[in-house]
Design a protein around this nucleic acid. Structure first.
Lengths: 205, 205, 205, 205
DNA sequence: ATCTAAGCGAGACGGTACGTCTTGTCTTAGG
DNA sequence: CCTAAGACAAGACGTACCGTCTCGCTTAGAT
């Protein structure tokens, strides 16, 4: 998935998948050790035991390299029916929170800044991250509608912002502890459900 | 506020305030024209008709310069009582949204990334942005408590994340239009109030 | 002659002589088109419709490849007795001049620089160029001695330098026109004969 | 003389001449230690204790840098009358021989190859080396004519080639010892004078 | 009316990363 | 074992930018 220029059909020596892995490992190590800004291509190459050309054959720029390495290929690819809108949304929030909290240090903010600076990276981001997220939320809303759980169908983008935004803010604006994310996401879930006009968990109060 | 190193006592030629203005204007122009990443100090100096030394006499780094230029000194400094929790929160959300939507292009994400990379900038950010925000929210919650509007007093950090996060996500993650922010913030207000356990405008109760 | 590593005995597919020709042609074309320095192995391979391995199977380095392609195998190999010292020397000068003037552009200076940088190429150069030249000159001097044409037997190396040097200088230091080489070589012949103490065609004696 | 882009008129920090010297020294050291081909800009900068930008501010390319450092500014600039054609030519040959024999290793061949590859360098070479040489020879021939030493006025270019060529060939084609250059140049002088149709040193024979 | 300390524009400085390029070797699949 | 295609490790190149420093000059307030 992270291949930039696929070999036409055949011919020539094939890409060595161990190189891909070595690059990915080196990137992850260096992000942890020195952070997003101080990571250099020369050091990635040296750490991976690989030439710089091998990296640039796979990734057009340093930013795309980090993006490709960090974004899991299967991000939100499946959204199995968990039986209720609340359970479906809880699963989505959990995966979003996990994806954001996992990368080391200032990686996510750094990447986001680069997404805004580089149109190519933006396209990649829309295609591989936003698209899946949007699609998954749409499916969940469809299912909730079918179940009759929704009084009103909320704007998907607003729901998306409501779910993903507070998690991002908690981690990267307020710099609060990731350990307490579950507390946040639980409150978040209540707020989101309130928005849907769905039955509030009033009985429990 | 943006002065880095104040003249000890006196003596010597005083700072020329037209230089400050020229720098600020040049920064704003260049952020609009080329974006956060491609803005260079040499170009700021040239555009402002100023030497680089004059810039560094005022701002320690490029990041602090942009931060100083963009962040209004009076951000959230006052939070007058608007009579109800809803009105108070609405005012806060509006100011947050305005602060985020105003700077050109990818400035906010770029700045956020640098805040995560540079401890000095982080301190500045906490002191000049987060602190005011936190304090304002605390005041608002105090007033609401005094008014008896709060069934439960929510965690201030969680409330903060809930308010600021979706706005950030709307603008910088989903890259949705700033024109439709009011729609988002209105829904956001409902969600936040739901969290406070305040009376919802829901007919279902 | 240009084969680097001869197939041990036999077995396997034999070398394809059309590959040799294609490489030689591509090298000559590219030397003309882009010059010695900008000629790359990848481009030679592409132009020849050949893999890089096929080139390296025949020539150890880029420099040896060019050397092998350009230096005629039979350079100065024969020096038939032309009847007089003057005629013999004239023939040698002519061949030297031809060898130097034929290759395109800056090939000869480029090759000379590499001869000084690479010991292996230097050996090749001594063996295939200098040696033949030295040996030929020695034969010519022997014959002239036998004919009684020499008042003094000049140092072979000095004579060599006197013959080859001005031609090289004319072409590659002064960058004068190759068309006027005959004028130079004719004067050169007189100067060389003067050195040998042979009878000058001077009416002044 | 080696300045690439002269400061317009005034303003700004002036070039530091110690940087020029440090670069020149580093280049000379490295040419001796590792040779023309293996000299790298990064190592020159490191050795000189200088940033790469400081080098490129003065010299457009690596080749120009070496050329600028090695070619003495005053090369053949003066050709004082030494009383006779023979003495004048002897002085010229000596200076040419010295200029060629001084630089380390394969520097001269390397530089010559680059002169043929790079038009900008070629112009520099013509202007700063060939031009002076040509002009000096013309002056010497003028003086000899005035003295009545010349039976025929030889082609300046041919004379130039005859003088400089054998020295070059001795050193860089035949790779003979520089110690024995005086023997060569003495014979060369005789040959050159023979060419001029001047009175040969016949009396001494 | 000087003196003096600091500001000013301009631009050179050391350092460092980027992304490109080339060389000579190695690895496929196929003849 | 040869072939074409092309990936591989290594490392130099020239560019760009940052934040500091140096030049000659200007501008005030203190003497």
């Amino acid at each position: 998935m992270s291949v930039r220029k696929q070999a036409r059909t055949q011919g020539g020596r094939p890409r060595d998948s161990r190189v891909d892995e070595a690059i990915a490992s080196a990137v992850r190590e260096l992000l942890t050790e020195v952070g997003y800004t101080r990571l250099t291509m020369a050091e990635v190459a040296a750490r991976a035991g690989v030439g710089k050309a091998a990296i640039y054959r796979r990734h057009a720029t340093k930013q795309e390299m980090i993006f490709d390495v960090l974004l899991p290929d299967k991000f939100l690819a499946v959204a199995p029916d968990r039986g209720s809108l609340r359970a479906d949304l809880a699963a989505v929030i959990a995966e979003i929170a996990d994806t954001m909290a996992s990368p080391p240090g200032g990686t996510v903010p750094g990447l986001l800044a680069d997404v805004h600076a580089d149109p190519a990276l933006r396209d990649r981001f829309v295609e591989r991250y936003l698209g899946f997220q949007r699609q998954t939320l749409a499916e969940i809303l469809d299912r909730a509608t079918a179940r009759g759980e929704l009084a009103v169908r909320p704007d998907p983008a607003a729901l998306n912002a409501l779910l993903v935004g507070p998690v991002f803010a908690w981690l990267f604006l307020l710099r609060e502890s990731p350990e307490q994310l579950p507390t946040l996401t639980s409150a978040l879930l209540d707020a989101a459900l309130a928005l849907t006009g769905a039955a509030l968990p009033a009985p429990s109060r």
